[in-house]
Amino acid sequence: MLMQGTSPTVALSAVSKSYGDVTALNNVDLEIFPGHIFGVLGPNGSGKSTMLKLISSVIQPDHGKVRVLGRDCSDEYVWVRHHVGFVPENSVIYESLSATEYLSLVSSVYGIETRTSRERISALSDALATSDIMDELVGSLSFGNRQKISIIAALVHDPEVIILDEPTKGLDPRSFRIFKDVLSMLAKRGKTIVFSTHVLEIAEELCERLCIMYRGEIRASGLVSDFVGTGKDRRRLEETFFRITGETSLESLTRGVGRAFA
């Protein structure tokens, strides 16, 4: 999967991460290149969030190296965070601050000029329809609106690499559509976008490349067309996903539930 002539924006080499006795990632190698939208798929507990946190330098690996834009995520984590925008799975925002206050804090931490941050936040909040809620305290916002504020916070410093952990959760159809368009536009401008999702249709529609994780390992990685085929051989991504993750007897499980509630 190496691309000739271009350096990878994100590179994981032999990366492992455990939480106590639980191995979240096991000897993972991965390279992601600029201008790509890269999808990370996998069932719950497969290690997707851990991998995205490692790339965002939120956590450090136990073994192996994680590099972003050529810098080591463990040694130069502050530099890496300056160049990465991260939307976590569960938006964690100060509940006692208003959305405006929180985004102002984020802008200050990134050292963005007031005028620039005001322009960017206004544009993003208009696009995601959050202009009316910017003065509300975050604690009183709905899950979807918090997610939108989290997305704005991740994009406000115009990062080179954008990491999104299940970013579409809670987004309404309008915001979802705009969000997809914005991601495509940013990728065309050379940004690297990595996101995880459980909605296989989104990955199929949006990504050029993706990987499927299972039990802390990358079981398959490549172009979307490698997974779904082309022309007459085209199949649903879901079929490939279940085959790789070993979920082949779903009907019998459904029948079991039916029997239990009969």
């Binding site: 100060y94 208003s98 405006t100 802008s107 200050s108 007031t114 005001r118 003065d135 305290l137």
Partner: peptide, 21 residues
């Protein structure tokens, strides 16, 4: 259900922003 907090965006030195928060 604390009411809205009117305010505009600002960017300031990091130490001041952290203390204000």
């Amino acid at each position: 259900t604390v009411g809205p907090r009117k305010g505009s965006y600002y960017s300031e030195p990091i130490h001041r922003a952290l203390e204000r928060k």
